[in-house]
Write a protein that binds this DNA or RNA. Structure first.
Length: 618
DNA sequence: CTAGCGTCA
DNA sequence: GTATTGACGCTAG
């Protein structure tokens, strides 16, 4: 039914039906007639309304422990109701509109409140839209109370390599499995179908797919992970996406100009020392200048080559080696740094800006390891390190000035609020210590004087006092540790270490000697993966690795490294998500705390906290 | 070494 | 002219 045509009594009845419902299956529909079930619809189309299938009887009596053999979706739902809620209004009919609008959100509010599962494909988008449309009526803490189920996330838990399963794919997979359902070929070309009847059928299918997925999750031991971690996260991400982060617009414009000027200078310098004009951003043209004209690679032994075409690489490692032979490499290196800074972190950020604010889009199913990913902007990838550039100033007094540009400072907290970050320290290494029970590694963590493992290791390896360990040393130590434990080859480690491959392999040897149990752990997880075909994280997250028994050496060893890495990185992702859920719920439960989550940077949570609440919140 | 995303050719 | 791919460089561990 369309709620616009309902009388008072009918509305009351509808609310009563909702009260008794056992599940809701819902999707948003857009201006262009598409719905959330139409794979990868564009965000440009605005939301027209919401269609809800109200399930009043259940084909699956109790959700967790049902048997899936008797699913007869086509005949068993006479009591189910399909309702259409319009959320967008023309300016006509002021009076009636108000009434409709109010009733619409009454319905939606009750759906959220009554703790009955709301099944939605891409539920995060649904919740976010609700928060955006009814921002004045519904607080984010109320959305946090709802119970949502997302089949897409369920499917991803079962197969995390399949990073974007579409609705159509799920239908195919889970419908043709038990028995073929009257496959009217409407789902091969459903894209423009605005018929609600058809949508009703699709929602019914979605419901059944979710039930099948729920069953599979249980069979595979993923149900708890799904319910306690991934489902609550949907709401957290929806709330996070509705929060806007303020960006210093003027500063952004100014730094863009400064960087642009510096790029021009560097371009001129490069042309001068090269003796010809060429495009600095083109690796092809650079290769011609560097190696065909100047023949710099002949003065230097062993230079990296590109994987496919076996051309001489123009990568950072090669350019670093060529630094002393010619002034050009250094200029290119700085050009690339400044260019990256400008295009990605400054201009890229400006592109994402709406009225002085940005808000990332979070993808819960974007990785194979359970980590989150973000885009527009990728707030997890914004450079930490500032760069220094010399700015020629044409103001009298001083000729030039050194300015430092650090992209992270471009984000500013609201007035009266401050950013608060909470992060795990060395989380993957701690997990590795725990899983391998390596005594030497465990000892390092238990010693109270070790405040920073990587700094300690850096001072140990370099033979310098820990106070003198610089940031770069620590960073290098960190890269080395992770490289070695995840199975780096000697060549790659040599690049990392800045030594010869021979020394690198000796380093690997002594590392393995000192931390024997790490090697045992590695072997054990590869062995388990070979037997079962998949690996498992602390919270039971799974990653099937089809290539683990492959004939091809390259493919097989890659799968082996992925297996080891997954167990550690996936477990770290589990813990970070647990932290997110726990902190979020404690804020929701608190009557006075208002702290908002801004971003998750894998092992770090960034909040915006009211100044007066910093103590209590932290 | 493993995960990602953005930019450029 | 538009779409895809590989190389590169930044993030996180």
């Amino acid at each position: 039914c369309d709620i616009r045509s309902l009388g008072y009594e009918e509305k009351r009845k509808l609310l009563a039906t909702i009260e008794k419902a056992v599940a809701f299956v819902t999707t948003m529909i857009f201006q262009d007639g598409s719905s959330q079930l139409n794979s990868e619809q564009v965000l440009t189309s605005s939301v027209k309304g919401v269609v809800v299938l109200v399930k009043n009887q259940t084909d699956y009596p109790c959700l967790p422990g049902y048997s899936s053999t008797d699913c007869t979706w086509d005949a068993a739902n006479e009591d189910d109701k399909l309702i259409y809620l319009k959320t967008e209004w023309s300016s006509l009919w002021e009076q009636e509109q108000q009434a409709h609008k109010k009733f619409t959100w009454q319905v939606l509010f009750q759906m959220l409140r009554c703790k009955v599962p709301i099944i939605c494909f891409n539920a995060k988008d649904f919740l976010r839209t609700l928060l955006q449309v009814y921002g004045n009526e519904i607080s984010w803490k109320q959305v946090a109370d709802s119970v949502v189920l997302d089949p897409r996330i369920a499917a991803w838990l079962i197969n995390p390599s399949d990073t974007v399963p579409s609705f159509e794919c799920l239908i195919q997979k889970y419908f043709e499995k038990p028995f073929s359902v009257e496959t009217v070929n409407t789902d091969t070309g459903p894209l423009r179908n605005t018929s609600y009847q058809n949508l009703g059928v699709n929602l019914e299918k979605l419901y059944n797919v979710m039930m099948d997925l729920a069953h599979d999750l249980q069979v595979q031991g993923l149900w708890k992970l799904f319910c306690t971690l991934e489902l609550p996260l949907i709401k957290i991400l929806a709330v996070m996406e509705t929060h806007k982060i303020h960006v210093n617009k003027q500063e952004l414009k100014k730094t863009s100009e400064i960087l642009g000027l510096r790029l021009k200078e560097l371009e001129q310098e490069a042309h001068q020392v090269a003796g010809e004009r060429f495009l600095l951003t083109s690796s092809h043209q650079l290769r011609e200048v560097l190696f065909e004209k100047l023949k710099l690679h002949t003065l230097c032994e062993k230079v990296h080559r590109t994987e496919i075409q076996q051309l001489v690489s123009t990568s950072e490692v090669v350019l670093n080696k060529l630094q002393d032979l010619h002034p050009l490499p250094k200029i290119i290196l700085e050009y690339r740094q400044v260019h990256k800074m400008k295009s990605t972190y400054v201009d890229g950020l400006r592109m994402c800006m709406r009225k002085g604010f940005i808000s990332s889009t979070w993808n819960q199913t974007g990785t194979a390891t359970g980590r989150l990913s973000a885009k527009h902007p990728n707030i997890q990838g914004i450079s930490k390190h500032p760069i220094r550039i010399t700015k020629k100033q044409y103001i009298k007094g001083k000729e030039e000035e050194i300015v430092t540009i650090s992209p992270r400072t471009l984000f500013v907290s609201k007035k009266g609020y401050t950013f608060l970050a909470a992060d795990f320290s060395h989380i993957e290494l701690r997990i590795l210590a725990d899983l391998s029970s390596e005594p030497e590694l465990l000892k390092l963590f238990q010693e109270p004087e070790t405040t920073d493992i990587f700094s300690s290791l850096a001072s140990q390896w370099k033979g310098i006092p820990s106070e003198q360990v610089k940031h770069a040393d620590r960073e290098q130590a960190k890269r080395i540790v992770y490289s070695v434990v995840y199975g780096a080859g000697k060549e790659r480690l040599a690049d990392c270490l800045g030594t010869t491959p021979l020394q690198a392999s000796q380093f690997i040897e002594s590392f393995m000697q000192k931390y024997k149990k790490i090697n045992e752990f590695t072997k054990k997880t590869i062995e388990q993966c070979r037997n079962k075909g998949y690996v498992v994280s602390i919270m039971g997250r799974k990653r099937p690795l089809a290539n683990i028994n492959a004939q091809d050496y390259k493919l097989r060893t890659q799968a082996e490294r992925q297996a080891v890495n997954f167990v550690v990185q996936g477990s770290a992702a589990d813990l970070c998500k647990m932290a997110m859920v726990e902190i979020f719920t404690s804020v929701v439960v608190s009557p006075n705390l208002t702290a908002r989550l801004i971003a998750q940077l894998h092992d770090e949570l960034l909040f915006e906290v009211e100044d007066s609440q910093i103590q209590e919140f932290s």
